[in-house]
Design a protein around this nucleic acid. Structure first.
Lengths: 228, 228
DNA sequence: CGCACTCTTGAGCGTTCTCAAGTGGAGTGG
DNA sequence: CCACTCCACTTGAGAACGCTCAAGAGTGCG
């Protein structure tokens, strides 16, 4: 598979919506000796669907996505990745999803053979890897509920609240969304127009403001009310 | 979380649609000493959402489902479980989904503390647990694509092909579906009426026959064509 | 300034949903 | 054994939500 494993949960004021265990990266630190740093430019692939899962990756900077195409071109985005997140650990033989850079990214790449070998010798690393897989699984299950049973408006709001934990810029209020509307639509199982319209509708309700460079959340309580 | 971990992949003539690694249950065998056998009747809960994940379970016989309710009653079924499948292993602290018996079931129950303790000492068990988590993750990702980007007709057909691997009766052709239409609808993110209508439509096309006790697949090639 | 691209807006359509009624077994009690 | 009830499933009609197609607005870049 191609999703990701969230390695570090940043200590935000708002707790992240996916309730992940408090993981730190320390148990992975001694893998550093096997790592190499890679740069992937905006829009380019990190790894492809169907390719052997020879490496796993840690996102150092930028934003990435995991995607899968259907035969006729329909696309599903499974996850967005943020600095500190791990990619490619959830595929056994070959990658199920592809991974692509949403913005210019820097990554650290580790051979899977080294990871597996170390995991065999260090129970704490094995436990960490399992915890990461389970944290990913929980997020996948949350996405299943979102896609299976939430309305378009609820999906957009859920997305905004999720992004609120990740995409906040240093200068306060404005939430910068590095991904395109198309990415958001394919992540939420909607059309790009539906995403647009609901954002505009929320803006008219005074809940948010759409800016040139991002979105400003004006009434988080109202957003949380919508997702109930 | 509350989904399941598929322990054994039965050697069917048709390969199962989710490409899981070839797992056998042997590495879990020495947990048997900690297990106890439990019977859960049709419709009753095995464990509830939000409850501490104190046990994990192996389904010995019958069929089970993992479900989650939204505040207003909307329901999502995450998975159906079959004999040999493991439940409850994918939750860290508390169960995210609930698990319920679709039919009368027999289960084997293991304390998580014992599982964790053994996993710490036996790297092969730790690896097995991780493989199970990753197999579950892959199936969750397949469900995400189904829910995000497939049409109602495609979802119903995907479901039928999945069930074809599990629910086959000994007496040949008839596929017995132990779960209700409501379960199927909540699994596929559809309304019960939409599931019905598409089944009838497929029957009219001569692809299947709806029987009192189940469904007979008449043209599997046509079904596979639909999911492309 | 013009081109390319993303995002927004509009109109109309279609799939799916909701609400409602009807059907048919399975089980129960007379 | 036959009514009666209950429940799951099916079928129908109409509405609603989200999609498609199309055009327009805004932005960045050469």
């Amino acid at each position: 598979m191609s999703t990701t494993m969230r390695a570090i949960q940043p200590a935000n004021s708002l707790p992240p919506r996916p309730e992940t265990p408090g993981l730190t990266a320390d148990a992975l630190d001694f893998l550093e000796q096997f790592g190499s740093t890679v740069r992937v430019r905006q829009g380019h692939k990190i790894y492809g669907a169907g390719e052997p899962a020879a490496f796993c990756w840690k996102l150092l900077s930028g934003c990435a996505r995991t995607v899968k195409f259907m035969a006729d071109g329909r696309r599903q985005v499974a996850e967005f990745l943020w600095p500190g997140d791990l990619l490619g650990l959830d595929d056994v033989g070959t990658h199920y999803f592809a991974a692509e850079a949403v913005t210019d990214t820097m990554l650290r790449r580790y051979p899977r053979s080294a990871v597996e070998a170390q995991a065999n010798r260090h129970p704490d690393l094995a436990l960490r890897l399992r915890s990461l897989a389970l944290a990913n699984l929980r997020r996948a299950h949350q996405q299943i509920i979102l896609l299976g049973r939430e309305t378009a408006k609820e999906r957009v709001v859920s997305f905004l609240l999720d992004m609120d934990d990740h995409a906040v810029t240093a200068e306060g209020r404005l939430m910068v969304l590095p991904m395109s509307r198309t990415d958001i639509a394919d992540y939420l199982g909607l059309s790009i127009e539906t995403v647009c319209r609901h954002l505009v509708r929320l803006q008219r309700e005074g809940i948010l403001a759409i800016r040139r460079t991002g979105i400003e959340l004006l009434d988080r309580a109202a957003l949380r009310e919508i997702t109930s």
